[in-house]
Computed example of a mutant assay.
Amino acid sequence: MDFNANKAIYLQIAEHVCEHIMLGTWKDEEKIPSVRDLAVQLEVNPNTVMRTYDLLQQKAIIANKRGIGFFLTPDAIKQVKAYRKSVFLADELPQMFRNVYLLEIDLEELQKRYQTFIEENFNQN
């Protein structure tokens, strides 16, 4: 995994885990890689993965079953979407609005491009 120097590694790992959940690679109530296994896979310090897992536990995305390992919660997808939505609205959307304003992109053009994006990427009939 290539890490962005502008964002904490544990947050980037959290995004990686959340993507696996949202894509269905990891399913609700399923065991996820151990701290050590994920650290080896991503070539990071296990303490960094533990920090990620602590964050995801606070967000009710994963739970620790003592002696067994970490598991996704029954409503992990719902919790991931809530977490990712709050991060997007707080961190990414203001920057996007700034660029829209500075580049004088009108809402009609944004709406058209958004609709095209949805049709090309998600409406696969």
Rank of each mutant, 00 (worst) to 15 (best):
F3Y: 07
A8P: 07
I13Y: 00
I13S: 01
A14V: 01
A14L: 04
E15Q: 00
V17E: 00
V17Q: 01
V17M: 10
C18E: 05
E19G: 14
E19R: 12
H20Y: 10
H20S: 11
I21V: 11
I21C: 01
I21G: 00
M22Y: 06
L23M: 11
L23C: 07
T25I: 10
T25H: 09
K27N: 09
K27C: 14
K27V: 14
D28E: 15
E29T: 07
E30R: 08
P33L: 09
V35T: 15
R36P: 00
D37S: 07
Q41E: 14
L42Y: 06
V44W: 07
N45G: 06
N45R: 15
N45M: 10
P46A: 02
N47C: 06
N47A: 13
V49I: 04
R51S: 12
T52Y: 08
Y53H: 08
Y53R: 11
L55E: 07
L56P: 01
K59W: 02
A60G: 02
I62K: 11
I62T: 00
A63Q: 12
K65Y: 04
R66A: 03
G67W: 03
G69L: 01
F70N: 13
F71R: 00
L72Q: 12
D75H: 09
A76F: 01
I77Y: 04
Q79L: 06
Q79I: 02
Q79V: 02
V80C: 10
V80R: 06
V80S: 06
V80G: 04
V80Y: 04
K81V: 15
K81C: 08
Y83C: 05
Y83W: 09
K85M: 08
K85D: 09
K85C: 13
S86C: 06
S86N: 05
S86Y: 01
S86F: 08
V87R: 01
F88L: 11
F88M: 14
L89P: 03
L89K: 12
L89M: 15
A90G: 12
A90K: 14
D91T: 03
L93S: 08
P94A: 07
P94Q: 13
F97V: 11
Y101G: 12
L102V: 03
L103Q: 14
L103S: 14
L103K: 15
I105K: 15
D106Q: 03
D106W: 08
E108K: 08
E108S: 13
E109G: 13
E109V: 02
T116Q: 13
F117L: 06
I118C: 01
E119R: 15
N123P: 02
Q124F: 04
